[in-house]
Amino acid sequence: KELVSALYDYQEKSPREVTMKKGDILTLLNSTNKDWWKVEVNGRQGFVPAAYVKKL
């Protein structure tokens, strides 16, 4: 599985998104959309802005 690192804090703005803190390591589930990537963090799945994470 592919991992990404959070470059910035992000506070979810809808139920489809997830909150992350800078430095968090997230499991990348889907990166086909260039703007929003689906990740899993702390057992929750949702979307984060692609520009806020980088692949490890």
Rank of each mutant, 00 (worst) to 15 (best):
Lys1Thr: 13
Lys1Ala: 13
Lys1Gly: 12
Glu2Gly: 10
Glu2Arg: 12
Leu3Pro: 04
Leu3Trp: 13
Val4Gly: 14
Val4Trp: 14
Val4Thr: 05
Ser5Asn: 07
Ser5Met: 15
Ala6Asp: 00
Ala6Pro: 02
Leu7His: 05
Leu7Ser: 05
Leu7Ile: 11
Leu7Ala: 06
Leu7Met: 10
Asp9Leu: 02
Asp9Gln: 03
Asp9Glu: 05
Asp9Trp: 03
Tyr10Glu: 00
Tyr10Ile: 01
Tyr10Gln: 00
Tyr10Ala: 00
Gln11Tyr: 15
Gln11Thr: 14
Gln11Arg: 12
Gln11Pro: 07
Gln11Ala: 13
Glu12Ser: 15
Glu12Tyr: 05
Glu12Cys: 14
Glu12Asn: 08
Glu12Asp: 05
Lys13Cys: 12
Lys13Leu: 10
Lys13Arg: 14
Ser14Phe: 07
Ser14Tyr: 07
Ser14Lys: 07
Pro15Glu: 12
Arg16Met: 14
Arg16Lys: 12
Val18Arg: 01
Val18His: 03
Thr19Cys: 07
Thr19Leu: 02
Thr19Asn: 08
Thr19Asp: 04
Thr19His: 05
Lys21Ile: 09
Lys21Met: 11
Lys22Glu: 08
Lys22Phe: 07
Lys22Thr: 08
Lys22Asp: 02
Gly23Leu: 03
Gly23Gln: 03
Gly23Pro: 00
Gly23His: 06
Gly23Phe: 05
Ile25Ala: 04
Ile25Leu: 10
Ile25Asp: 02
Ile25Arg: 06
Ile25Cys: 07
Ile25Gln: 06
Leu26Gln: 00
Leu26Trp: 02
Leu26Val: 08
Leu26Phe: 07
Thr27Asp: 05
Leu28Ser: 01
Leu28Arg: 00
Leu29Arg: 03
Asn30Ser: 13
Asn30Arg: 06
Asn30Glu: 15
Asn30Ala: 09
Asn30Leu: 09
Ser31Lys: 09
Asn33His: 12
Asn33Phe: 08
Asn33Glu: 11
Asn33Gly: 11
Asn33Met: 09
Lys34Glu: 11
Lys34Phe: 08
Lys34Ile: 11
Lys34Val: 11
Asp35Glu: 12
Asp35Gly: 09
Asp35His: 15
Trp36Gly: 01
Trp36Asp: 01
Trp37Ala: 04
Trp37Val: 07
Trp37Lys: 01
Trp37Gly: 00
Lys38Ile: 14
Val39Glu: 00
Val39Ala: 01
Val39Ser: 00
Glu40Ser: 09
Glu40Thr: 06
Glu40Ile: 06
Glu40Cys: 12
Val41Met: 14
Val41Thr: 11
Val41Glu: 03
Asn42Tyr: 08
Asn42Ile: 04
Asn42Asp: 13
Gly43Cys: 07
Gln45Ile: 15
Gln45Tyr: 08
Gly46Trp: 03
Gly46Ala: 03
Gly46Pro: 01
Gly46Met: 05
Gly46Asp: 00
Phe47Ser: 03
Phe47Ala: 02
Val48Leu: 02
Val48Gln: 00
Pro49Met: 03
Pro49Gln: 02
Pro49Cys: 04
Ala50Pro: 05
Ala50Asp: 02
Ala50His: 03
Ala50Trp: 02
Ala51Gly: 13
Ala51Thr: 12
Tyr52Thr: 08
Tyr52Pro: 02
Val53Ala: 03
Val53Asp: 01
Val53Gly: 01
Lys54Gln: 14
Lys54Asn: 09
Lys55Asp: 06
Lys55Trp: 09
Lys55Cys: 11
Lys55Arg: 14
Leu56Lys: 06
Leu56Gly: 07
Leu56Ser: 08
Leu56Met: 11
